[in-house]
Design a protein around this nucleic acid. Structure first.
Lengths: 105, 105
DNA sequence: GCGTAATACATCGTATCACGAAGTATTAGA
DNA sequence: TCTAATACTTCGTGATACGATGTATTACGC
C-alpha cells in the first residue's frame, strides 16, 4: 500500500499493538503483519520516537540469554489513540469529499 | 489535523478537486479549504508533482491581465483516484485493528 | 557437528514531502 | 494612496519510512 497513506497510521498502529499487554519489537512486527507491513528499521525508529514522546516505556528483559525490550503503553499513549479516533472523523469527511460524485461508494 | 495523516490524502484531494472541471491553484485552495487546509507552497508543489507524474495537464490562460494556470485531470489521474478507492479498504481494516477492543467504535 | 533460518535489536544514508517564509505582480476597494 | 485579495514561484527545513548492513544467539535439519 501507498507509503504516504501509511504514515498517519503507523504510530497509532504500534501503540495499538501494545495497548493490551507489553510487547517487543519482533513480536509487534509479526502481530502487525496481518494488517500492515513494516520493516524492522521502520519499527525501531517508531518505537524510539514514541518513547521520546512519552507515549510508551521500555524495559529490557533477559529472555533465553538474549536481550528483549518490552514496550508498554503510557497514559499519554492511550490518549494519543483517543486523539486519533477524533481525528478520524475529519479523515472520513475528507474521504467523502474525494468520493463525492462517484457512483458506488 | 496531523500532518502525517494528511499525507496520503492530499494528492488525491487535489485530483478530486479538478476531476469535475479544470481549476486553478488559488481556486483549488479555496475549494479544499472546507474540508482540508493546505498552504500555497504545498499546493503548488503537489500540482507540479502530479503534472510530472502525468496525472494532470496544465494550460496557462490569460485572465484579467494575469496569468492563470488551469489544471485538468488525465485518465491516469482518474485511475489514481480509483486506486485510492481500492486502497481505502485496506486503510479501513487497519483502522479496525487500531480500534479493536475499543468500546463505542 | 555444521550450516541455515529464525529470533532480536541497532545504525546509517537516502528520498519524499508538507510547510513557513519570502518574493513578484496585478486588480479592487476603502 | 494604502491595503487586501488574487495568483503563482522558489528556497530551506524538519519529519520520516525504508533498504542495506551489522551484531548475536538459539533452534533445527542433515
Amino acid at each position: 500500500m501507498d507509503i504516504q497513506l501509511k504514515r498517519g497510521l503507523l504510530d497509532v498502529c504500534v501503540l495499538s499493538a501494545i495497548k493490551g499487554e507489553a510487547s517487543y519489537g519482533y513480536k509487534i512486527i509479526k502481530d502487525l503483519g496481518h494488517c500492515i507491513e513494516l520493516s524492522e528499521s521502520t519499527l525501531y525508529t517508531i518505537l524510539k520516537r514514541l518513547e521520546l514522546a512519552g507515549l510508551l516505556t521500555v524495559e529490557a528483559v533477559e529472555h533465553g540469554g538474549r536481550l528483549r525490550k518490552y514496550y508498554r503503553i503510557t497514559a499519554e499513549g492511550t490518549a494519543r489513540i483517543a486523539e486519533f479516533k477524533r481525528e478520524w472523523r475529519e479523515v472520513m469527511s475528507i474521504y467523502q469529499f474525494i468520493m463525492k460524485g462517484d457512483e458506488a461508494l
